[in-house]
Amino acid sequence: MAAVIELDGLNVRFGPRDILKDLRCSMSGRAIGLLGPNGAGKSTLINTLLGFYRPFAGTARVFGHDIRTETRQIRALTGYMPESDCFIASMTAVNFIRMMAELSGLPSDAALERAHEALFYVGLGEARYRRLGTYSLGMKQLAKLAQAIAHGPKLVVLDEPTNGLDPPARQRMIRLIREMRDTNEVSILISSHLLRDVEETCEEVLILKEGHQVHYANLEEERRANRRFLELETVGGDNGFADAVSALGCECALTSAHRMKMVLPESFAIRELYRLAGERNIQIRRLSYRRDSLEDIFLKAMESTNGRP
């Protein structure tokens, strides 16, 4: 799959302070998560990709376009939902989103049509003729999402999309992001400090700490790999069970008399374990896959010294 975002030794400096330090990564997932504590550089990275800040050293590419020289092309392919409240309070939602779509290059009629569609899509159809200044926080977030997608970009950048949302509104936002991701028509870059949001929506994750890249993980691959690690707790029988399992091609290690960990081969079917247990009159009391959650990955990444892995 072609890279959506490539970071090539990217360094961003404000005055004497290095904000982003030598980021190197290639991300090609449909939904990419940017994780990190406050001040890690997530928003700075987004703003640099959009051309708001100039790199001090290195560069980055979005769909192959260099951020140093092809900012306009990148912006033409991108929709951006900022973290802070951004809107023109005196405009109605439909007029505001129409204007934003026109600024992205859509003709006036097409922009109007897509403004209506985008507002219906995010669930603001009934409120589209209301002034943005009268919207609640959740509605403003949805309006920001609508303006980011109205012109049909190839990459949607969402900076803390669930900030300040109550649980139902958050669920709605997450569902919209997942729906967009699953259309395969758009790539999504989500910056968040909420692990759950990223875990529920993203396929890849880049973790930043103090401007350093501390971890990059393909969550889909990790989830697939985790499915091969198994923990088993049995009652009855003897150690012969472990040998029998090993004979089927599993790597097996006993952690206690009735507990074992195993790595399953690619084509191994779990029913084989139940069959072996049945033959040996062994009860399988617990069978669990290793679940290296994003929280584990994140905490491990945060343990690294000075933000370095």
């Binding site: 959009l50 708001f52 306009r72 092309q73 912006r75 033409a76 991108t78 929709g79 951006y80 900022p82 802070s84 409240d85 951004c86 809107f87 023109i88 309070a89 934003m100 600024l103 992205s104 290059g105 303006q147 012109h151």
Partner: peptide, 13 residues
């Protein structure tokens, strides 16, 4: 209204 990022994130200088 902090609207400048919305104008300037588009192909619009």
């Amino acid at each position: 209204n902090n609207a400048l990022p919305l104008y300037l994130c588009r192909p619009f200088s």
